[in-house]
Amino acid sequence: MESTRADDEVRAALAAAEDESANPAERAEMLMEIAMGLQQRPKLSEQILSAIDLYDRALRVCPQDERLLLARISARKGSALLILPEEGTLALQQARAAFEAAIPHLIDFGRPEELAEAEMNLGLAIQNLAGHHKARITDAISAYQRALRTFDKVRFPKEFAILQNNLATAFLSMPFTDSRAKMREALAVQAFEEGLKTVSLIDHPTEYAMLQNNLGNALQYASSSHALENNLRALDAYDEALKVRVRATMPLEYANTVSNKANCLWNLPDDPERPEDGNRANLLAAREYYRESREIFSTSGEVDKARTVAEALEQIQRELLSTPPSKPAGKNGGETRDRIETDLKEH
């Protein structure tokens, strides 16, 4: 049903492009708007590809002196390329090129919010390319910081929070082998916490949960002398995320967070005041979370995550069997950390 409707819209767009009663700029704008509609609904890869094709047609139809319209079409094409599933980096490279083509004209003719949105999404394209060693993460950070000139915490709390999240993940993705590693960890935690000051559980539940989950990860894996305190704070953050990420409505997000929580529990004594008494109760709780997340990942086709959680589950089971209830259990190596999430502003 969804595919048929999308096909109808593509045909309507192509007919609009051939409508000689409209001038070229009007035809280009019609193509762009229909492409945006395809992009906004539940995203099958075929719909995204169709949207990209319509953006390309709009760019060909649009007069070259309509620089603002060309920039808007290019920026929207870039956002579609960002969400296109692919194995390599071609779409990401094309997205970066599209944003970089649009930004100079948005500076000259666009609204501040349009420019900030393009900078924000450019940062995301560069950050993902940096993960493939195809770009510099510092360029992503610069793009996010430029976007923050407009997306401040007062007027744009949601966008501000997303940018803080993406800045934090960029800091955490930098090499941790130099003397500034701890400073970047602290900056990441600070950015997550700054983002959480602007969004609420009621008004921005998705962003709130994302930030809480990622704050928990940053705290849990920080190279700090305050590991116990950080893990307790991480546990609180995961519990906040789980107020939104419930299994019935957000199963994959729920599985990510409970597997993170399981890993945190594995490293926590049952009684922080008496760590010598061990953490058998927390190990048992972690085992149940791992079992639940493995089931969700398996049924959702997340093969790699299911395998990673299964390995953790096997390890924790061996630890429980080899450790009498009266003795402390050991710690794991923190291998079930899920990808810290970045986000882009949708049109």
Rank of each mutant, 00 (worst) to 15 (best):
C264M: 11
L219N: 07
H132G: 00
L59G: 03
L252C: 01
S298P: 02
P85D: 08
T206E: 15
F99T: 10
D178L: 09
P251A: 11
E314G: 12
A58W: 03
D65L: 07
G278S: 10
L106T: 10
Q94H: 12
Q145L: 13
D270F: 04
D304E: 15
E335R: 13
E26R: 14
E159T: 06
T150D: 05
D338G: 05
I52L: 07
I316V: 15
N128V: 01
V309N: 02
K43M: 10
N332V: 01
Q315M: 12
E193K: 15
E273M: 11
T249Q: 13
V189G: 02
M32H: 08
G123L: 06
W266E: 15
A262D: 05
I296M: 08
A101D: 15
R294E: 15
P272V: 12
V10L: 02
L84H: 05
Q40T: 07
N231C: 08
A262Y: 01
R339C: 02
F156L: 03
H105K: 06
T308C: 03
Y254T: 04
A35H: 04
E288L: 14
L252H: 01
A191D: 05
Q164H: 13
A222N: 10
E207W: 07
I340P: 00
Y144W: 06
K327W: 06
T299C: 03
T323R: 06
A191H: 09
K158M: 10
L219S: 08
R27L: 11
A95E: 07
T198E: 09
D178R: 05
Y290R: 02
E18W: 01
I126N: 01
E114M: 06
E86R: 11
F192W: 07
L129M: 06
L92F: 08
D8V: 10
E46T: 13
A262E: 03
A118Y: 02
